[in-house]
Amino acid sequence: MRDALDGGFTDAAPDAARAFRAILTAMARPGQIARVTGATGPVPMSLAAAAVLLTLCDPTTPLHLAGRYDTDAIRAWVAFHIGAPLVGADSADFVLGDWADLLPLDRFRQGSPDYPDRSATLIVEMRELTAEGATLTGPGIRDSACLSLPDRAAFRDNATRFPLGVDFLFTAGDRVAALPRTTQVF
């Protein structure tokens, strides 16, 4: 087992700044795949997911570990590097897991009409991430984009809840892509 003390950013401020810029670009341009590096979490966590957690999560953001990500090694790593309280699906700001363990999506915080931003961000671990498959349109996309999404119907349902709903970050290896609730999936 890896040591829980390993795998954080080497130089926290610039590493997190570069990782965030990649995540920001991904969220602003749905379908565009960016690279994030600098962190290593315990297996089966991808490099990208580790960097996303270190960049966005801290003791103020409840985190839900779904399915095979809820291990002692990952709990210890999160406790040391991030300090996020580990919670159930219904009260998490951030969720980490495989797609199959995240359904149904209405378990997660959807935001309220007054505060639609108080909704969960789901970090979906993928085997691979490529610019093919489902067609995406909406804010951030010039004409249309393609992304290898694990599903279509669930994302369509989520988009119909706008301005409520959850937002997605997809991670595979050192790659990250995003799907905000505004994106229409075909």
């Binding site: 966005l56 931003d117 909704s119 706008f162 937002d167 905000p180 609730r181």
Partner: peptide, 10 residues
């Protein structure tokens, strides 16, 4: 940064 991501999403 978390606020910026939600701002882009809505």
């Amino acid at each position: 940064r978390r606020a910026l991501l939600k701002a882009l999403a809505i």
